[in-house]
Amino acid sequence: MILPQIQIARGHWILGALFLAIILDEYLPLIGRDDQPARSRSPLIGWALMIGGAGVWATVIFADVVHDMLVHFLWGDLLLAAGALELARRRGVYERPWLDYVLPLAILGCGLLFLVHVEIDPEGQGARWHLSMGLLLVAAGLLELLRLRWPRVAAIPLGLPALAAFALLLIAIPVAAAS
């Protein structure tokens, strides 16, 4: 099934806005009445990662060429694993200190797979946009990892600007580059 390019672009804009809304809600601290920051523990992120992983696996199944299948199944695995662990943590059935690393590593992994995909298919439609998006996700993942390792900045959502920039790229993507 091939969608008209304008509809693909409209999808990018709308879903970029949804992503922006959700990451702002997840990462921007709510300063409570006691002036202490409170962070969201909503299971929304976990389910969204899970459904996203299932969707990427659907992309594996419907891929045009073999290399797309190979890259996308890794993506799907990453999102499914991260989603399951985030869900378990947020619902309180499995809690370990290392689970703090799951979301940053998932973001980093998604960014790296973007770069791998662009490397395999450098002349692809919107390759520069995908390269930028990959770099932003890598930066966001690394900054979130830094935040975990550096307690002095733990309260500052370092990765948020890069994630927000990623969302803004989706919102701003031109019709010709959306794919």
Partner: peptide, 14 residues
């Protein structure tokens, strides 16, 4: 779904 409009909608939501 136009980019400036969705930015305003997200601003309103947050």
């Amino acid at each position: 779904d136009q980019p400036p409009v969705v930015l305003a909608l997200v601003g309103g939501w947050i």
